[in-house]
Design a protein around this nucleic acid. Structure first.
Length: 552
RNA sequence: GGCGAGUUGGUGAAGCGGCUUAACACACUGCCCUUUCACGGCAGCAUUCACGGAUUCGAAUUCCGUACUCGUCACCA
């Protein structure tokens, strides 16, 4: 084809494209940012549901952009109409929002490099394709699905690579007359890249996470524009990341095999290659097969970002967990700097896992427990309340009605240097602190007590009536308990009891256990005296009575 | 099958040629502290880094081969 013919072809294919490359290059100039600033992007498809892996990805994007004073933007990648789901975009924003992932630029907050949704950038993509046609670097391909299928079969039989390349690229050198005829005929077509590559050449490529890699050059005439005129991921990626001036393309591992295509595309288009950072997918061990696989939204409820909110794991705990799997040295740093935020840590690419990143719920639980242990009683109350308001209305009302006492209970053993670690989810507060609310305690009716002993109500009654003084300090209180123990034939310390078990009915611990079971309905609880002080003598007596009725 | 990557304890992982008789965390077990439960402290938990070979005075760390795992091979992203 001659120069003139190519220009004619370009006009024939894209009569409505009036701008040229220069127009867009000027419209989207280099960003004015400080040295070393990273421009990152998160490009979800609006398929209706943010996957944990995507959240992880966007967390990385935002973290790196923030710590370099760069820009983090959100680009909706909706080039596949079939997959697009109604309200999908809304869902992305909601999920991201709940984890404080706030892009600097997006369809919502705008920005100078928009539109931030690919379906509205079709003119831009077509402008660049038109230019490629003029340059003879792309061409319309009329191959039907059937034809594609048959070359594929042929290739499989001959044991050669599948795909449209070399001699298999039938429409590569169609004459302008042939093209005109097919178009006049109403034949559908896609635009393919006329690949200049040779698979015998090896390209070297450096990924910021994975390091150096070698690939054979791509010679595939892959599709740039689908028959509906909308670009494929590959093409949109090249155009958008160039025009939006992304400095670091951070994306999941599954893209590394497309690298040869992308490198070639950037070259053909004359674009500077951004940095690439391919992170490992989130994996877990499949319970049935025992093999490691990607977190799957079909099989694993924890793959959905909304899961954590529902179950009541605090967003901050999830973020802390994401930070610990992001950089292997974060965990240790955080242990040494418990007062700091994860945002004070400097994350680096070389501390990211190269292989699979295992998603460990056990560890998340532990991190969450630590998170709770560092919160004050009041904070735990407020957060639990706002969670319950959304997910457990009934409990929310109970919390509201018992606010004062509830905060007191939640504050037990919080002031020391070693706070309890008994809660990992908001939903557990209800379980763990059921004794804090009278109505719940009565309703439970000792069902939480899992021991097999019964305790002497009279003994406890005697203690409460004649020995218990709630206006003293812990030490004085406990001395009194010891006194009572001795008066009733119990050892004042477990050590004495262990020495001569036959001399005693038991030891102080047994007395405390009896009290604890009667007033909390369980064998385990935070500091007993603190609980008694909050309850007050009347309630204590009532609960002892309740126990008496139930078991005697 | 082609191409690319990975393989360190129950789990996640550190390690990048001698400082490793393999860090740290989670889990588990035991002991100690203790009125209970926790928290905390101490100890135990891979004599060995998938397997085989090579390079080297010296290898978990480099190279080659094998096995297994993962990703990818679309007009999906």
């Amino acid at each position: 084809m001659t120069n003139e013919e190519r220009i004619e072809l370009a006009e024939l294919l894209f009569p409505n494209i009036k701008h040229d490359r220069a127009y867009y290059e000027e419209k989207y100039p280099e960003r004015d940012l400080p040295e070393g600033a990273m421009v990152t992007r998160f490009g979800p498809s609006p398929t209706g549901f943010v996957h944990m892996g995507s959240l992880f990805g966007s967390f990385i994007d935002m973290t790196y952009a923030r710590q370099t004073n760069g820009v983090f933007y959100l680009r909706i990648e909706d080039t596949d109409q079939k997959r697009t789901v109604e309200n999908g975009v809304e869902g992305i924003f909601t999920d991201l929002d709940s984890f404080d992932i706030c892009p600097d630029e997006s369809t919502k907050v705008g920005g100078e490099y928009g539109p931030y949704i690919q379906s509205q950038r079709v003119d831009i993509y077509q402008t660049y394709v038109k230019d490629l046609i003029v340059q003879g670097k792309a061409y319309p391909c009329f191959m039907t699905e059937k034809e594609l299928e048959s070359i594929r079969e042929e290739q499989e039989i001959n044991k050669v690579r599948t795909g449209v390349y070399g001699i298999y690229a039938a429409d590569r050198d169609l004459s302008i007359e042939e093209i005109k005829e097919k178009i006049a005929n109403g034949d559908e077509y896609v635009i393919r890249l006329k690949s200049p590559g040779n698979p015998n050449n090896i390209i070297e490529f450096t990924d910021l996470i994975k390091g150096k890699m070698k690939f054979p050059e791509s010679d595939e005439d892959f599709v740039l524009l689908k028959k509906d005129g909308v670009p494929t991921y590959h093409f949109a990626h090249a155009i958008d990341d160039h025009l939006m001036h992304t400095t670091h393309v951070i994306r999941a591992d599954e893209w590394v095999s497309s690298i040869p295509k992308h490198v070639q595309l950037f070259n053909v288009l004359g674009f500077k290659l951004p940095n690439f950072c391919h992170h490992a997918p989130l994996t877990k061990k499949d319970e049935e097969t025992g093999t490691i696989r990607k977190l799957s939204k079909r099989k694993d409820p924890e793959a959905a970002v909304s899961y954590y909110e529902e179950v009541g794991i605090p967003n901050d705990a999830v973020k802390l967990y994401l930070a610990t799997i992001l950089n292997s040295n974060f965990e240790e740093w955080y242990l040494e700097n418990p007062d700091k935020s994860y945002q004070d840590f400097t994350f680096t690419f070389n501390k990211m896992a190269v292989g699979g990143t295992s998603f460990d719920l056990d560890k998340l639980t532990n991190i969450s427990k630590t998170y709770f242990s560092r919160k004050s009683g009041e904070e735990v109350y407020e957060e639990t309340l706002s969670w319950a308001l959304k997910h457990d209305k009934e409990y929310a009302e109970l919390l509201l009605a018992n606010k004062e006492d509830m905060i007191k209970f939640l504050s037990i053993e919080k002031d020391g240097p070693r706070p309890r670690k008994d809660i990992s989810k908001y939903s557990e507060v209800k379980e763990e602190f059921s004794y804090a609310i009278d109505s719940m305690f009565e309703e439970e009716d000792y069902s939480k007590f899992d021991g097999d002993k019964t305790y002497d109500t009279n003994l406890v009654l005697d203690y409460v009536n004649n020995y218990l003084d709630l206006d003293v300090d812990n030490e004085a209180w406990f001395n009194k308990v010891k006194e009572f123990a001795e008066a009733n034939g119990y050892a004042a310390s477990p050590k004495d009891y262990k020495k001569n078990p036959d001399d005693y009915k038991g030891h102080v611990g047994d007395i405390c256990e009896a009290i604890r079971v009667m007033i909390t309905g369980r064998l385990k609880s935070p500091d007993l005296f603190s609980i008694m002080k909050i309850l007050g003598k009347d309630k204590i007596l009532k609960r002892v009575e309740l126990y008496n009725k139930k078991f005697n």
